[in-house]
Amino acid sequence: MSSVFITFCFIKTVSGNSKFLNGTAIYRVSDDEDEFRELNYKGFTRNSETLIVDFERNSIVLMIGRYVYHQNAEYLSLIQTVLLLSPQTDSACALEDLPYIFPLLIYSAPAVTNSYI
């Protein structure tokens, strides 16, 4: 089974080198002001044609990636990132700046003969 996860995230931590970046990000779960979830992300940037743009801590980024939930933790292998707000602009970004847009999770799986849901 494969799944694609798309959401706006507040970057809590970011580290890495010229080949990859990783860290933690927070996304909004509902329109309740205090309902957020944290995920761990990793993106490989070795290829010069990568769709992962550079971002820094306290940025708001649209993240698209392959999603895995394992042992009460969420992981995202980045496919593409789009920087929306950065602390380098006039004012610093805060967690409350995240848009009220819920994450999109798309699942796909091969069909299995003689099976049903």
Results as ranks from 00 to 15, higher is better:
Gln80Met: 04
Glu74His: 02
Gly43Thr: 03
Ser3Leu: 07
Asn17Val: 06
Val4His: 02
Ser77Arg: 00
Leu83Pro: 08
Tyr41Pro: 14
Val61Thr: 08
Arg57Ala: 03
Thr7Ile: 01
Arg46Asn: 13
Thr81Cys: 04
Val112Gln: 15
Ala73Thr: 12
Thr50Gln: 02
Tyr100Arg: 13
Met1Leu: 01
Thr50Asn: 00
Ser115Met: 03
Leu84Gly: 14
Ser59His: 10
Leu85Cys: 13
Tyr116Ser: 15
Ile6Asn: 07
Ile106Leu: 13
Thr13Asp: 05
Phe5Tyr: 15
Ser86Cys: 07
Glu49Pro: 13
Leu83His: 03
Thr81Asp: 02
Arg66Trp: 13
Ile26Gln: 07
Gln71Val: 01
Met63Pro: 07
Phe102Gly: 15
Ile101Tyr: 05
Tyr116Thr: 14
Tyr107Asn: 14
Gln80Glu: 03
Tyr107Cys: 07
Gln80Asn: 04
Asp32Ile: 03
Phe20Ile: 04
Ile11Leu: 05
Thr24Ser: 05
Cys93Val: 11
Ile11Cys: 02
Gln88Asn: 15
Thr89His: 13
Leu39Tyr: 12
Leu85His: 12
Cys9Pro: 07
Glu38Trp: 03
Tyr67Ile: 11
Tyr41Asn: 06
Gln88Met: 14
Ser86Lys: 06
Thr7Leu: 02
Gln71Arg: 04
Arg46Trp: 07
Ile11Asn: 09
Phe102Met: 12
Phe36His: 15
Thr7Cys: 07
Leu21Tyr: 09
Asp97Tyr: 04
Val82Lys: 07
Thr24His: 06
Phe55Ala: 05
Leu98Thr: 01
Leu76Met: 01
Leu51Trp: 10
Ser86Ala: 10
Arg37Thr: 08
Ala92Pro: 14
Arg66Gln: 11
Gln80Ile: 06
Glu38Tyr: 06
Thr45Ile: 11
Ile106Tyr: 14
Pro99His: 06
Tyr75Ser: 03
Met63Arg: 09
Ile117Met: 09
Pro99Lys: 02
Tyr41Leu: 09
Ser3Tyr: 05
Ser59Leu: 04
Lys19Arg: 05
Ser86Pro: 05
Ala73Val: 08
